[in-house]
């Protein structure tokens, strides 16, 4: 069955077999159900009253939905060791400062790596690319030593400062600048006597808004979902995610509150993604690795 692919200028006739269409649809539906059902189940669990949570045989769907689990969650928050607002403050503070620092440092470095030809830029960019090839677990032990030497154990610094130099954001920003900031515009600004910093701030940065947004979201997501850190011992400095995991670890009676807290915690990154999806996809268009 010929299927038409419309583009802005013309219509292309693609060769598409019915069998292929059906097969692909079935595959997508099965995978979609596999991906989506657990998410639905969390929401169902969060709405179940206690007797339905412990019903035999267990049911997938909720029969008499209630918001009691959510109100229980807030009651439990009131009983915490330090005022619950402190955990919320910690997570918000860490997420905001960490993200802001990462955005500032990464975009400055990305601009220099993408748009200034200086000796060593290839070396630095290769290092960044290589750093995408291993996880932070590898550097954990050595970083603990560094943190002890710096005296940052059990301070906000131990969580915020390393977040400044996450490399995925810099990588995406640099690739996006490569492809969407025209060098000739920058050249003419330089000819007019604009300093490199001014060119960066007033000309390049406004052109890469989708990349900023992507970087902000990635950085924010990482910090928002951060649980217990090995560097933090004081209860006053711990995060919301940690506090919630403590609440829900409190036994069988809290199964409903546990599901409710998962729903609350996941609502934030999902909402952020829904709002910014088109910008993220735009940034990803230039994410490719060349060599």
């Amino acid at each position: 069955m010929p299927k038409k692919l419309r583009t802005r200028k013309h219509t292309v006739v693609l060769n598409r077999s019915v069998g292929g269409d059906v097969g692909i649809s079935i595959f997508l539906i099965i995978m979609g159900v596999f991906m989506f059902l657990p998410m639905v189940y969390v929401i169902m669990q969060s709405l179940k009253p206690l007797d339905e949570l412990w019903m035999f045989p267990p049911r997938f769907y909720v029969i008499k939905p209630t918001l009691k689990n959510f109100s229980d969650l807030f009651t439990l928050m009131g009983d915490s060791w330090v005022p619950f607002s402190r955990y919320i403050f910690n997570t918000v503070f860490i997420s905001v400062t960490g993200t802001f620092g990462n955005l500032l440092l990464s975009s400055m470095a990305a601009y220099a790596l993408a748009k200034i030809e200086f000796p060593g830029r290839n070396f630095f960019f290769q290092l960044i690319q290589k750093s995408l090839m291993f996880t932070a677990t590898v550097t954990g032990i050595a970083n603990f030593i560094t943190m002890s030497i710096l005296g940052w154990v059990d301070t906000y610094f131990a969580v915020i400062i390393p977040a400044f130099c996450t490399t995925l954001g810099l990588y995406l920003m640099k690739q996006f600048m490569d492809s969407s900031v025209s060098t000739s515009v920058l050249e003419s600004a330089r000819l007019d006597g604009s300093t490199e910093f001014r060119t960066f701030w007033t000309i390049a940065m406004p052109m890469v808004k989708p990349a900023w947004l992507t970087l902000i979201i990635y950085s924010f997501q990482g910090l928002w979902n951060a649980g217990a850190s090995i560097y933090i011992h004081s209860e006053q400095l711990k995060t919301l995610n940690y506090a919630i995991s403590q609440i829900v670890a409190g036994g069988i009676a809290r199964a409903g509150a546990a599901a409710a807290s998962t729903v609350v915690m996941m609502a934030v990154p999902i909402t952020v993604f829904v709002i910014s999806q088109s910008n993220i996809i735009e940034t990803m268009a230039s994410s490719g690795m060349k060599d």
Binding site: M108, A109, I128, T139, C165, F197, F200
Partner: peptide, 26 residues
């Protein structure tokens, strides 16, 4: 191009402290 080095310095210094040096140190 000294401006370029000033621009990458804050990121790169932290990146070396928390990623490059730890690999060598381990």
């Amino acid at each position: 191009n000294k401006t370029a080095y000033i621009m990458i310095a804050p990121f790169m210094i932290l990146f070396f402290i928390f990623t490059v040096i730890p690999v060598v140190l381990s």
